[in-house]
C-alpha cells in the first residue's frame, strides 16, 4: 500500500511482551502533566527511537497506554516521555516515583520526516500537549540547524499557565535561530504574548511556501484547521505532516483498534501525510 509516513525501524520478536523500565527522574510540567526519564531496569539505556514515535507504557495491574516520546533521540542514555493524567493508566503512570518500575513496549509508529526538511523552511505547529511529541523533532532541528532554512515554531495552548516546557521555550528563543510564537486562547491583561488560535499565526508566516515543510501535532480539530491554513498560504499538502490519535492497544497493527480507513494509525502513523488523510479528517466517525 501507499507509504503514509516513514516506516518504523524496530521490530521485537514478541511485540506484546513488555520490557521493564525504571523511572530515573520525574518532573512536574503542569498540574496534571509529568515528564518521566526512563532507563532500563538495570540503569542502562532502553531503546533507540526516532522523533515522533511512541511507546506503550504499562502500569502494574492497571493497563497500558500509548505515549509519544518527548525527549532527544540523540540521547540514548534515557527515554523521556511526557504524560498527562487523564485516565486510570495515565494517572498510575504519572504517580510513579523515581526508582519505580513500569512495563514498556516499543518504540512504535512512523517518525517526523525531519530530514525531508533539509534545505527547506520548516514550520512546526503545536497545540496543547501536542508540543511533547514534536519536541524530539525540535531537538533534531536544533542539532542540525545549518541544514534547514528558516525555522518557525507556532505553539498554541489554552491559557498562559498551560504552556508546556516553558523554560525550554524561553531558552530556545534566546539560543536558537528559530522564530517561536506562542499564542493562547484566553488570557488576562497581564499576558504579553499572542491571544487567539494558533491558526491565526499561519497567514503571517514569512516562509518560502514552495520550499517548506510543516510538522503539526495537537488535538485533531486544531490539526485540521492548521493544516488547511498552511495549505491555504501555499504549503503543498504533501509537505504537511500530522500526528493522529486513535485507540491503540497492540501498537503493531494486529488488534485493529486504531484503524483509520485503509491505515492503522499505530504502524502507518501516527505521523501521516496530510494529502493522504485530508479527506478522511473531514468525515465524521471514521
Amino acid at each position: 500500500m501507499d507509504r503514509l509516513g516513514e516506516r518504523a525501524p524496530v521490530m521485537a520478536p514478541d511485540a506484546m511482551l513488555p520490557l521493564i523500565a525504571r523511572v530515573a527522574r520525574r518532573v512536574r510540567e503542569l498540574p496534571d502533566t509529568w515528564t518521566l526519564d526512563l532507563v532500563a531496569a538495570d540503569g542502562g539505556p532502553l531503546m533507540r527511537y526516532a522523533p515522533g514515535q511512541f511507546t506503550m507504557m504499562y502500569a502494574f495491574g492497571v493497563g497500558e497506554i500509548p505515549v509519544s516520546v518527548s525527549g532527544d533521540a540523540a540521547d540514548q542514555t534515557r527515554l523521556v516521555q511526557t504524560v498527562r493524567a487523564v485516565g486510570k493508566v495515565s494517572e498510575a503512570v504519572t504517580r510513579l516515583a523515581a526508582g519505580d518500575t513500569l512495563g514498556l513496549r516499543g518504540p512504535y509508529g512512523t517518525a517526523w520526516p525531519v530530514a525531508e526538511g533539509y534545505g527547506r523552511d520548516v514550520v512546526v505547529v503545536a497545540g496543547g500537549l501536542g508540543l511533547a511529541p514534536l519536541r524530539p523533532a525540535l531537538y533534531q532541528l536544533q542539532a542540525e540547524r545549518k541544514r534547514f532554512g528558516k525555522l518557525v515554531l507556532l505553539y498554541g495552548t489554552r491559557r498562559p499557565e498551560d504552556i508546556l516546557f516553558r523554560r525550554q521555550l524561553a531558552n530556545w528563543r534566546r539560543q536558537l535561530d528559530m522564530e517561536i510564537e506562542v499564542t493562547v486562547d484566553h488570557a488576562g491583561a497581564a499576558w504579553r504574548g499572542h491571544v487567539g488560535v494558533v491558526t491565526r499565526l499561519i497567514p503571517r508566516l514569512g516562509i518560502d511556501v514552495d520550499n517548506a515543510m510543516a510538522l503539526v501535532c495537537g488535538p485533531e480539530v486544531m490539526m485540521r484547521f492548521a493544516a488547511s491554513a498552511l495549505n491555504d498560504i501555499g504549503v503543498p499538502e504533501e509537505a504537511i505532516h500530522l500526528s493522529l490519535e486513535r485507540n491503540m492497544k497492540c501498537a503493531v497493527g494486529l488488534c485493529g483498534h486504531c484503524q483509520f480507513a485503509g491505515s492503522f494509525v499505530c504502524k502507518d502513523g501516527a505521523v501521516m501525510r496530510y494529502d493522504k488523510v485530508r479527506r478522511l479528517l473531514g468525515l465524521k466517525e471514521i
Binding site: G63, L254, C255
Partner: peptide
C-alpha cells in the same frame, strides 16, 4: 481478527 487486552490482578 480484532482483539482487546484485559488486565487482571
Amino acid at each position: 481478527f480484532c482483539t482487546a487486552v484485559e488486565d487482571e490482578n
